[in-house]
Design a protein around this nucleic acid. Structure first.
Lengths: 232, 232, 232, 232
DNA sequence: AATGAATGAGCATTCATTCAT
DNA sequence: GATGAATGAATGCTCATTCAT
């Protein structure tokens, strides 16, 4: 289903589990790249990342955004691009990791109660709200993912973050007989992540229009019902 | 989530409803293009379509498949491509419509009983089986959809075919009090189509591995539970 | 000035001289090509010539008129073109010779009196009238002439027809002391042919607008004055 | 005859009138294009213009001169062409304007006396001498003009520069009764410009051979006679 | 003779990447 | 480090000409 799930991902039930147990990727990855840069260099690098983001969003397309668009938007010289990044792909990867990390963090429920349905509702709201706000970049990320294996991997990694967290919760619920025990927690986590993620893609990237409240309520219902959640 | 849902789409419950009520697009669309072609011309055109399909699948990428790859694979001259198609896009559109139509037809349950859960199970099996068989082309279609509006539209159209059919069934079940009446049939149809479609994408395009039987069983459970299906 | 003079050509004073003393080129040239053609073949060939003429005039450009335009306009098959002509150039050459011959003939004064000024006036009128009627083809002929040496040669040959005729008349007038004897008849013939020819080009191809009568009158005055014509 | 007049143009009598009253086009036109170019950029741009000129002259044809010929001749990379020019047409337009401007300037009589015939003689000499020197480029310009409307416009504009100047002089002479007052000054200017311009085309582009002195003398005679110039 | 499909050389243009200043 | 000009490989598309039927 959806390029969306593919990349960022859905909702929660992360519960008490360490909220960011597996901070997929994170901004750390470029620690090397940053080492040894002067203050000026760091600033230029940042301008490029910001300029690129805005260039990508303006064009709305990974392939159609040229290096020239990026440097123009950043206000730096053409050649400077290659001082900081190996290629458009390298820069975009960094950008994508950042977005995807934000989405992961924002998609982590801050709900602290014990009602699984409320937790699901909170998670879905947070995830879809995050999706809405990142729709422009998600469009591009989906494009890159469709195009290049490394972005496909990034997307799966991120998705896996959600799936793991959710599967862990499902297992807990299942052990505690608070949900239908005949359901495979891992597969269910995958399937429900697919649902929410792709629904976000449909809604915010493809532009299908839904009533906010009704959509959220329905998703929560579907999650809850499908798991056969029990009060206690 | 997934580019997949975007294009082809998911499962059924099409029930008694005319199985191909809305044959989205269909292969007819190129009736014009075919008119007035000699037998020889038709053959060459077909060779190009077949050669293109195999070229796309070999390269595994829409953009990276060049016209030169297509004609080489087809065994025709470069110029012949343009005798039959205006552009790579035009040819691929035809190919995509074909695949997408097959998936729609194959995703239409042939189940004729009255048990909704059995119907869902049959539909999902058929759809995912179809997805598996068309995985190579779906990969390319998703790519094209991520990149170009017209393919995005094609994908949405097709997805809509499934959604409409399923939503109609949900409405029927709801009226008959055979499912949870508090669920919005249209949104639920979208969400569950997202689930199955994106799950197929994850499974057959991204290559996540699942146990066949367990995956299908789980999906059926999730659909059934989520709707609160009642025996009668 | 003018592409026009370059091709067809100007006015007269051809006087008593054989009106078509040097039928430059003439349609004879393709006698060979015509030999051995069946009646049907002749008809197809003719359709091609006529279709080509109309295709060229429609497009208004030698280069932009494709073989495909010609055969479409002629209602014959693509391949038939090459049954009758070696190339677009070959066909157009024949067409150009035809037009140029018509212009030569039409530019030959039918005036039979003894008044040189009246003869000049008649010639210029006839030539420019002919130019006006053939403007569309002349535009194309000029293009071809600018492009290819053989058309340049054709044009010069035709022009030479006029020049020779006119120079002969100038020599006669000069010997008879009926014009300024200090003027070189050949150079003057060239120069005045240039004037009328290029004026026609300016008027009918470039589209400069002139009052008909005033333009003709002025040209006649200029010719007459420039030669220093004397009544008798 | 006359693609020539069409573009650059002929002779004079510009007399006391501001010699460059209407510097048609002028080299200024590309001020914009030049703005913001580094010294290095300017050099490369110039190399391209010069290389193009020599490439055009070598090939002797606008259409048959390829971008690749131009860059080879210029000693720059293929891609550099597009750094400075949008297309072959754009570059050539600049070149053509330059040539045409030079011809206009060089065709402006530097004669300062009061004898109209001497002025005409000086003008024609200068114009034809200029034509001879620019013959190679004029050949190409005529070709471009025959083929493309924008070059046709350029040519007419330039021609108009001469016509206007000459017509103004004719009007002055006419008012002063120093020429045949029954002659329309504007039409006569057009016609005589046609004569000289097309004669230049015939002579230097088509390659008709004339005795220098005799040709010039004859043209001057024809101009003078045709206008019925009077001593004072 | 007629037909129209097949052929492929030819060319303009783009754009990521390199490199001299 | 910054700059932006230089580079040239890569590729889509056109269209005159050939050829099998």
């Amino acid at each position: 289903m959806a390029k969306s799930t593919r990349t960022g991902t859905p909702s929660g039930l992360e519960a008490a589990s360490a909220p960011d147990a597996e901070p997929p990727d994170s901004a750390l990855m470029n620690a090397d790249a940053l080492a040894g840069l002067s203050a000026k260099g760091l600033r230029t690098r940042k301008r490029l990342l910001e300029g690129a983001r805005s260039a990508f969003e303006k064009k709305g397309s990974y392939v159609e955004t040229r290096i020239s668009d990026i440097v123009k938007e950043s206000g730096v010289a053409y050649g400077s691009f290659y001082t900081y990044f190996e290629s458009k792909e390298a820069l975009f990867y960094e950008l994508a990791v950042e977005v995807v990390h934000e989405m992961y963090v924002e998609g982590t429920s801050r709900y602290r109660g014990d009602n699984p349905l409320e937790r699901i509702d909170a998670s879905n709201r947070q995830f879809l709200d995050s999706y809405r706000r990142h729709a422009a970049m998600m469009t591009i990320i989906e494009q890159a993912a469709a195009l290049y294996p490394e972005f496909r991997a990034l997307r799966r990694r991120l998705r896996q973050g959600f799936v793991d967290r959710i599967a862990a919760n499902f297992e807990r619920l299942s052990s505690a007989r608070r949900m239908d025990t005949s359901i495979d927690p891992v597969i269910a986590a995958h399937a429900l992540v697919s649902m929410t993620d792709n629904f976000g893609y449909l809604w915010f990237v493809l532009g299908e229009s839904f009533d906010d409240e009704k959509a959220l309520t329905t998703l929560t219902q579907l999650w809850g019902n499908s798991l056969g959640l029990r009060r206690s």
